[in-house]
Design a protein around this nucleic acid. Sequence first.
DNA 1: CTGAAAGCGCTTACAG
DNA 2: CTGAAAGCGCTTACAG
Lengths: 338, 338
Amino acid sequence: MEEKNLTINDIAEELGVSKTTISRAISGKGRIGADTRKKVLEYIEAHNYRLNVIAKGLAQNKTYNIGLVLPGDYNVVELPFFQNCMMGICKLASERDYDVLISMVTGQNIAQLERAVTNHKIDGVILTRTLTKDAPMEYLKESGIPFVAIGSTGDDTVIQIDNDHRRACKELTGNLLRQGIKKIALIGSDESHVVTGNRLRGFEDAFGELDGWQGSREVFLNVDNGRQVEEIVKRLLQERIECIVTMDDFLCGCVLDALQRSGAQVPDEVQVGSFYDSTFLANHMPSVTSIRFNVEELGTKACELLLDLLEEKDVERRTLLGYEVRMRRSTRSFRTGS
Amino acid sequence: MEEKNLTINDIAEELGVSKTTISRAISGKGRIGADTRKKVLEYIEAHNYRLNVIAKGLAQNKTYNIGLVLPGDYNVVELPFFQNCMMGICKLASERDYDVLISMVTGQNIAQLERAVTNHKIDGVILTRTLTKDAPMEYLKESGIPFVAIGSTGDDTVIQIDNDHRRACKELTGNLLRQGIKKIALIGSDESHVVTGNRLRGFEDAFGELDGWQGSREVFLNVDNGRQVEEIVKRLLQERIECIVTMDDFLCGCVLDALQRSGAQVPDEVQVGSFYDSTFLANHMPSVTSIRFNVEELGTKACELLLDLLEEKDVERRTLLGYEVRMRRSTRSFRTGS
DNA sequence: CTGAAAGCGCTTACAG
DNA sequence: CTGAAAGCGCTTACAG
């Protein structure tokens, strides 16, 4: 049970000083005598007083809340991504005394986001993915509220942070090509996600670097269900495909299923590589070559950017985080264990 | 761009009335002339003024925020559950002009939750799961803040809402037993989750109802990885198991893998049933018998309970929502398509 | 170094 | 039906 909400006024009265003094002792702003300060702080500690952040916010025209926009039209495979992002964001926000308020948007429906900003409930927002045509982002831009995007966008005015999917995909693809693969395919999902394009570009980059590569490559985008994958794999097997790279672990799971049903051996007949290194495939035999991103860090950094921005600090417009290519047994050139 | 934050004062001045009147026109509380009211509302509409909820809250000692506690030590398979819950909660909250603030808790670390409540940032909270020893719940109880739990708990003082896992599991198990199964096993995960116990009870209930059932049943709890499942399945096959029921679709996926590797046919040699009916197994062949819950509705209802509670309405202490058993091809007695 | 006062944008008795 | 005033719990020039 709490002792009926102590206020700054109560303390001032109790201690025989003005509430201005109390406020200063707490905030650390403004000159104040060391002993007065100590006295106040001790009292606060002893009676475990907690500042009313709402009131503070009203006086400062701040909320100490940040908005987190999360897609409602999610895909199971993306869930761990959003979850980990959220972890990083919440952790940092809470460290810097902010809270995280969520707005779920589905398709063009950004009502929840609009509510949060027009109701003055948030100081800034974090977008957790970017689309080629991005309704939430459009809205945020015209609303004028500070925001940072997790993901990439061509719009240089938006503060963005992302893992380097392009280089990651290039490196993975390069690793595979260098073992002499002549027939390779890339399967990806939604082209409306900016990241899909970036990975595709990385895939293409790999060929550009290998001069004199002779062979065929195929790209399938916008595939989002097992049946489609099944057909694609069938066709690829007829063409004697040597390697299939998938843009996410759901697709990869489908590919592996399809290969197994067709009796094709991995990696002897077909090699397989994927993105994200999620728990979906964690137990798969053979272990699957994949790219690993530190998503929680991505969230933390994004949140840091936003909070710095809110505190008027200078922030990097574009941040690119690393990745780790893990070659495993689903490709022939695997290096280490795990 | 917003037109520099209109306030209730500006409007009062502009319209030549008091701000009391404006406030009443907006809130609908207190007597006010129909024409005055209309005039104010029109002005508001025309200049799209939005009430500052924070200020309103301060005056009323409310925040219009609810806290949502989400586990950080999640398991991939549970993610869709939390996501769907969140959907339902956010939707309803937003309809009733509340916002949702998240606190992630991991293990005994409930720091984020504590921050939210001691900082006076939320009016109430929703717990998204229940544990046999539940640190967040303990904290909420002693803090005195109103809350509702999604999931069940023996503590009758807490307002709780859940799907009827016990009956669901009983019905599924009963369906299977009635086709003459003599050897059946149940595999579940974390026993510290209250729901695990409820399902187990439902499983047992089914035997109680079938008088004269002769056979053997085995229960494996706290299994949480593929290797364990693999071993269990191996052993069960030696014992010529006829049916395996799993408590979640991750376990089910592991079981199916293990069966396939052992060359056991589903459902001819071993029948398989599961919980949750998630996308994880959506594409599986044969289709998997499972139980379906409307999780979004669960979230919506939970949120409704909490908001009603906050508005001092009477609310049900314990709500039990339904389920749907979907018999499919992984068991011999499947009924319909899908 | 400290305080009185005004103000953040609302609500709500109280009085008329 | 309407308004003046006090108050929600803070912050912040301004003055001393």
